[in-house]
Amino acid sequence: MEPLVLTMGWLGIFAPLTLGAIGSMIGVGRGGQAAAGAMLEVEGGYGRFVGVAAMPSSQTIYGIVVMLTLNRTVTLGSSPGLFVLGTLTGVALLMSAMAQGSACAAAINTSKSKPEVFGISIAPAAVIEGFAVFVFVFALVLAGAIPK
């Protein structure tokens, strides 16, 4: 039983980065494909499409910071907290990056035909980013309560 509990603790430490990175890969992949498609239709302004497509990268950065904050000696006392906080943060970052990728793809698709709505079209993606930031900040706050 003890090795299992300790394994869960390690899983919790690395989950925010792993799941956040997987989410970023999927999200940037979606946005990137849409950006590549839009470039076939427009004559300029390619850079902003690529910029929007890269938005879901931030979840990986949040994952790195949470992982470093959670990183400590894994004991029977700290493992449950590390597992719960780490995996839930990781899942939230994964889902937010995927959703943000879809929102970015939609924004790119819309703004290629109607450039004047570019700013407002990325607002939904920015709101999704806000939810990821909530998870990130409160993961850091709660990490302080896990025994060292």
């Binding site: 494909q33 950006a35 590549a36 498609g37 076939l40 239709e41 790119i108 698709n109 290629k112």
Partner: peptide, 13 residues
Amino acid sequence: RRYYQLVASLPAL
């Protein structure tokens, strides 16, 4: 299947 590139490469009708 999702077609992000294809859909984004089509003009608005």
